[in-house]
Amino acid sequence: MSDISYTTEEIASLLKVSKLTVYDLIKKGDLIAYRVGRQMRVDAADLEAYKQRARGGVSPIRLDQPPSQSSVSTADRDIVISGQDMALDILTRHLEGHDGIRPLRSYIGSLNGLMAMYRGEAHIVSTHLWDGDTGEYNIPYVRKILVSHHYTIVNLVSRQAGLYVQKGNPKKLTGWSDLGRDDISIVNREKGSGARVLLDEQLRLHRIASSDVHGYQNEESSHLGVAGAVASGCADTGVGIEKVAYVVGVDFIPLIQERYDLVILKTPDNTMLLDNLLRTLQSSAFQSEIKAIGGYDLTHTGKILYENR
Rank of each mutant, 00 (worst) to 15 (best):
I145N: 08
E136S: 11
G162T: 05
V142F: 06
P140L: 09
N138Y: 09
N155D: 06
I145M: 14
K167L: 09
P140M: 07
H150A: 14
R159M: 13
H149V: 06
D133Q: 12
V147R: 15
Y137V: 03
A161I: 03
I139E: 13
Y164P: 02
V165N: 01
P140Q: 11
L156Y: 04
H150D: 14
V147N: 14
L163W: 07
I153G: 00
V165D: 00
K167A: 10
G135M: 11
N155V: 00
T152F: 01
V142P: 01
G135T: 09
S148V: 11
S148Q: 14
L163A: 08
G135H: 12
Y164G: 03
N138M: 10
H149S: 14
Y137E: 02
I139L: 14
Y164V: 04
I153N: 00
N138G: 11
G132N: 06
E136G: 04
I145W: 10
R159N: 09
Y151C: 01
V142C: 05
D133T: 09
I145R: 10
Q166C: 07
S148R: 15
Q166V: 05
Y151L: 02
T134N: 08
G132P: 02
A161V: 09
G135Y: 12
K167Y: 04
G162V: 02
L163R: 04
I153L: 13
V147L: 14
V147Q: 15
Q160R: 10
I153H: 01
Y141K: 12
S148L: 13
D133C: 03
G132T: 06
R159P: 00
V142Q: 02
P140E: 06
A161N: 13
V154D: 00
E136C: 08
Y151H: 04
H149D: 15
T134M: 10
T152E: 11
V147T: 15
R159T: 12
V142T: 06
N138T: 11
Q166A: 13
K167N: 09
V142Y: 02
Y137L: 04
D133Y: 05
L156S: 07
I139Q: 13
L163G: 02
N155M: 04
E136H: 09
G135Q: 09
R159G: 05
K167E: 07
L156M: 12
D133L: 10
G132Q: 07
L156N: 03
I139K: 14
I153F: 00
N138W: 05
Y164I: 06
S148T: 13
G135A: 11
G132E: 06
V165R: 00
K144N: 14
Y141S: 13
L146I: 05
S148A: 14
V157A: 03
Y137K: 03
P140Y: 07
Q166I: 06
I145A: 07
D133I: 05
V154I: 14
K167M: 05
R159V: 09
R159K: 11
S158G: 10
Y137W: 15
H149G: 09
G135R: 11
V157E: 00
T134K: 13
Y164D: 06
Y151D: 00
I145Y: 13
Y164K: 05
I153W: 01
Q166R: 15
V154L: 07
Q166D: 09
L146D: 03
K144Q: 15
Y141D: 07
P140V: 06
T152L: 08
P140N: 10
Y137M: 08
S158F: 02
V165F: 02
I139M: 11
Y141I: 10
K144A: 15
Q160W: 13
V157I: 14
I145P: 04
